[in-house]
């Protein structure tokens, strides 16, 4: 399979991300672009159970964007999945918008939790997974984290807790784009030991190329049936899909100018031609 359909969606999401952040004049393009294939696999690769007509459907799987600065990517995916109108995407970060810089579940009820402070999503997911087990529900919990937020003490507390409770319904995903605001995750705080840490804590770790649909989908399918907490360590490229943003830390939290956005969109449209039927 060549996953043309998914690649086409991912390309569309990337274009949306660039348009949204440019229109907003601020935001996080690097970490939004790096997690696109992960989100598209979950929402369009038949991994997550959800119903856009009934967003609070009791049996839905729970997805938590712990790296909440990737909100533009999630908003674009949720819109693409039919939760809300595509036009609304351009209200990102504007006054009175439902699309806050980091998601707010009260204003925007299509996310499971509000977020924005790193290190919080994993344990919220643990709470949901424990609730599912206690209530004998078979929905699963997916938490997307950054590699930078593995430095947060609260993430490490959650890593312990998930193992203690033998959570077989919790899947952590790390968007390992290797860069955080002040530089390389490896240099800033031992990024190279992240996988070892999860293994040492007692998690199952599956390594994938985070831009490869085949690897991602296989990993998710496998992870769903593993009877303990699973960490999918997805190696990614920060700024993926826009040549001048790739692997450049300065695109962590900066909006492109209109001129830069035009170049980025031209690149993406050129790429899209490959997926045209």
């Amino acid at each position: 399979m060549d996953f043309l359909h998914l690649k086409k969606i991912a390309n569309q999401i990337r274009q949306d991300i660039i348009k949204m952040i440019t229109e907003a004049g601020s935001g996080h393009p690097g970490g939004s672009l790096s997690c696109v294939e992960i989100l598209v696999s979950l929402y369009f690769g038949d991994i997550l159970k959800y119903d856009p007509q009934n967003p609070h459907w009791e049996e839905r799987d729970r997805f938590i964007l712990s790296k909440a600065h990737g909100a533009p990517a999630l908003y674009a995916v949720l819109s693409q999945a039919g939760f809300f109108s595509h036009n609304e995407l351009l209200t990102l970060r504007k006054i009175n918008s439902r699309l806050q810089g980091h998601p707010d579940r009260i204003k925007f009820p299509y996310v499971e939790t509000s977020g924005g402070a790193l290190g919080q999503g994993l344990s919220i997911g643990i709470g949901m997974a424990l609730a599912a087990l206690y209530q004998k529900k078979d929905w699963q919990v997916f938490v997307l984290m950054s590699d930078g937020e593995q430095e947060e003490g609260s993430t490490m507390e959650g890593m312990l807790c998930a193992v203690k409770y033998k959570l077989n319904n919790l899947i952590g995903i790390i968007d390992a784009n290797r860069l955080q605001i002040d530089g390389s995750v490896d240099e800033i705080m031992e990024g190279k030991t992240i996988k070892k840490r999860y293994l040492a804590f007692g998690w199952e770790v599956i390594e994938v190329n985070g831009h490869n649909f085949s690897e991602l989908l296989n990993a998710f399918k496998k992870a769903k049936n593993i009877q303990k907490p699973v960490c999918i360590f997805a190696s990614t490229i920060k700024g993926k899909g826009v040549s001048f943003m790739e692997n450049k830390v300065q695109w962590h939290g900066k909006a492109p100018t209109t001129k830069e956005a035009k170049i980025a969109l031209e690149e993406l449209k050129e790429e899209a031609k490959k997926y045209a039927n």
Binding site: S123, G127, Y134, E157, L160
Partner: peptide, 23 residues
């Protein structure tokens, strides 16, 4: 009853996740 050990940050978040799931 959930013994969280000395993970007070984790405890607050787990509680939040449970509350968001109806407990």
């Amino acid at each position: 009853f959930f013994e969280m050990g000395l993970t007070e940050q984790n405890m607050a978040l787990v509680a939040a996740g449970m509350a968001l799931s109806g407990l």
